[in-house]
Write a protein that binds this DNA or RNA. Sequence first.
DNA 1: ACCAGGAATCTGGTATACCAGTATCGTTAT
DNA 2: ATAACGATACTGGTATACCAGATTCCTGGT
Lengths: 228, 228
Amino acid sequence: MQKMIPKAERRTSIDAVFEALHDDISSLKLVPGAKLSEAEIASQFGVSRQPVRDAFTRLENKGLLLIRPKKATVVRGFSMPEIAHARFVRVAIEIEVLRAGCAIWDEERDVRLQENLERQREVVAKGDGEAFHSLDYDFHKMICHMSGHPLAFKAIQECKRSVDRLCVLSLDRKDEAALLVKDHEEIAAALSERRADAAEKAARKHFARLDSTIDEIYAKHVEFFEET
Amino acid sequence: MQKMIPKAERRTSIDAVFEALHDDISSLKLVPGAKLSEAEIASQFGVSRQPVRDAFTRLENKGLLLIRPKKATVVRGFSMPEIAHARFVRVAIEIEVLRAGCAIWDEERDVRLQENLERQREVVAKGDGEAFHSLDYDFHKMICHMSGHPLAFKAIQECKRSVDRLCVLSLDRKDEAALLVKDHEEIAAALSERRADAAEKAARKHFARLDSTIDEIYAKHVEFFEET
DNA sequence: ACCAGGAATCTGGTATACCAGTATCGTTAT
DNA sequence: ATAACGATACTGGTATACCAGATTCCTGGT
């Protein structure tokens, strides 16, 4: 009962390399198809090849890299089937969460969600896209937690990941954000009235908005997509 | 256009170690809490520590191992929150698949699904649990594929994995299998009539049957569960 | 000018050695 | 007998060297 040091969470070279590469790939500083050399990255970070190798493995498991024996490791491109699948799973989970939420929703939850919505309206009025993105994130997270399924949000994040990397290519317009807030209000209202079917309908409409954006990006950046 | 060698799919030492350990863990030959030594496994397989290390990493990413720096690597136990989450996600996906299926179901699909059901009835009558398990697997897989979401089945398998490892502890009774077939018939009927709500209801009943089994196993084998 | 062939140079996979924390257990002081 | 301590035998993380397959590109022949 002595080591009350909270955790310290030892940080290893692998973590450093992993996070740096993850950021570069997510922000498209490393574009799909780019070749990554273990040796090159290693010297660049001042470590040996081994930690780099481990970091590569992690990134491959997250679907961001493609590693083949004796071939160069490359950044994976987007895949339309994969994106469609992520969307499918996300919708499935969000709807199930809403269903669970409708069964237990109460006024206290309602109040907390309305607080978030109020701030969404504020930042959208100001045109602060960055802040809206953060509140949007919180909105869905809050619903998961308050519905009793905090882990579901982690699963949703998994689904979002592939799309997020894609969305840095989209120019986010303010009018789009306004529509999304309207959707959120609809979802909140359905929860408040505990009408699962209405919530599902609103959610489907909400997520359908992404489709056109993705199609636009596909048309504009076919080179980032895998041929399959 | 010369290398038409189908694929050969080069098999590496990492794969060998990974698969062997994966099987041992899945079949509970390696029980939760068991300590795995890189060096020991390495000499046991006649390879160096490096491939073993890589295999460990893969297993950790699949949630089967717990690796901490400077601590022994151990087989992870079951976690009730994790199992509940896997169940939640699986139900969400299966229902969404059924919903999509109901929108496009036709007689040809119906015939193929009925073929599978007929074989289910046969093997259950014979009490062949092994064959039923395989047909059960196919049943859900067929629905995913015929609903136009083959990838969804892969996601479902991910969810099943943690539960499957648990289910080797359950003594499967024949009467249970009979009930499961009845559920399948209900689901197939709902699809045939393209009634999404009925399909959802049947699916929920189907998956609810697992809960009692899991509770039984928990009561009987608390030592395999993580405390969290 | 072009193309075939092969050497030089990549790639990731493997083996080995060493390091710094951690756990274990025997020893010693009380 | 017991409890504090310390040597020792572990653990996983890192660095390095080497290997075989794949790629690249230069060279020599046409």
